[in-house]
Nucleic acid binder design. Structure first.
Length: 312
RNA sequence: GGCGACAUAGCCAAGUGGUAAGGCAGAGCUCUGCAAAAGCUCGAUUCCCCGGUCCGAAUCCGGGUGUCGCCU
């Protein structure tokens, strides 16, 4: 089984720089695990590594989709596995770098996703939900998939719909697919490292500063040109933090400084959610950093673990 | 110096005699095809302080302190 290294952690902790440094040192290539850096022309707001920052290291799954496309985890999993396998076949080290936990999990798992319903079915279910209300919808789901119904939190329309969708297209409960998927062995032999700052406030300060820097680098212009080129404000890509707020300011819904504050706040909350997601993985090796971490600091902590993992 | 208004959680704030709404910020959590998304949960044994009235006070009375406004 191929060995791969995963570098994750909340936003603004230096994953990119560490990934590149390790790739350079161990003959690796980077596979991005970032749901928004996937999109072309979204560079500033997603903190996509520049050519200079990549330092000649090949990066996969950056700019893999148009912002007008609807990307999804399953598409990512497929493409990322292909990239990883290709890197392995060339006897190089794949470094999965990014903060989208769901994407990483999907890449590492070998189980397929439960089937997907047609857009028509999705629309139909959505309409049914809105028409009959959550309680009645839940009653129906309960008959099809009592487990999912019990597990999904009140108000979580999205997951309630998905559970029903799976049952309608396959006749099998989503819960059953999930149970099966847990039985699959992992796809790769992986070492997961999670960068984090020991001090939460320091992390938040870095995030705020990074947002200011994005503004200086021309985030507003980037968003404006996406909108001008016909990217819908409702597209998945435009839901990215930094983009939805700027789009709102551009259409006059709020002031620029309000938008900036919201971007900062959204990013802070995002970081918090990332931490909460990562914490449940007991295999994860945490790399706690100081308030103003340097690449050297992260490298010093990460390298022994990497070396140990590669030698085993 | 005088007069008046206000003082409730980190911030904004409702409540005007019957046992502390709500919002924001923050924290914790969930997650198997939109995930930078979507969803769930959690703060005041106490209302600036002291005294009084009352069965009962954040609410009424007196005194203090602070903030703001107006006047001199």
């Amino acid at each position: 089984m191929g060995k791969i290294i995963v570098i994750t952690g909340p936003t603004a902790t230096g994953k990119t720089a560490l990934g590149v440094a390790l790739a350079l040192r161990y003959g690796g290539e980077v596979v991005s695990a970032d749901s928004m850096q996937i999109y072309r022309r979204m560079d500033i707001g997603t903190a996509k590594p520049t050519m200079e920052e990549r330092r000649g290291v090949p990066h996969h799954l950056l700019d893999a989709a148009e912002p007008t496309e609807d990307y999804s985890v399953s598409r990512y999993a497929e493409a990322a596995r292909r990239a990883v396998d290709d890197i392995l076949s060339r006897k190089r080290l794949p470094l999965v770098v990014g903060g989208t936990g769901l994407y990483i999990e999907a890449l590492l798992r070998s189980a397929p996703f439960a089937p997907r319903g047609s857009d028509g079915l999705r629309a139909e279910l959505g309409a049914a939900f809105d028409c009959m209300g959550e309680d009645a919808f839940r009653e129906e789901l309960k008959r099809a998939d009592p487990e999912a119904e019990a597990r999904i939190q009140r108000g979580d329309r999205k997951r309630l719909l998905r559970a029903m969708e799976v049952y309608r297209v396959s006749g099998q409960p989503l819960s059953e697919f999930d149970r099966q998927s847990r039985l699959y062995p992992p796809r790769y032999h992986s070492l997961s490292l999670a960068l984090t700052l020991k001090n939460r406030e320091a992390l938040y300060r870095r995030i705020d500063r990074r947002v200011d820097r994005m503004m200086e680098e021309g985030l507003e212009e980037e968003v404006r040109s996406l909108l001008n080129s016909g990217v819908s404000p409702r597209s998945t890509a435009m839901q990215a933090i930094g983009y939805k707020e700027m789009a709102e300011a551009i259409r006059g819904g709020c002031s620029l400084s309000e938008a900036v504050d919201r971007i900062k706040q959204g990013s802070r909350r995002y970081a918090k959610r990332q931490l909460s997601w990562l914490r449940r993985d007991p295999e994860l090796r945490w790399i706690p950093l100081s308030d103003e971490p340097s690449l050297e600091e992260a490298l010093a902590l990460a390298e022994p673990m990497v070396r140990d993992f590669l030698e085993k």
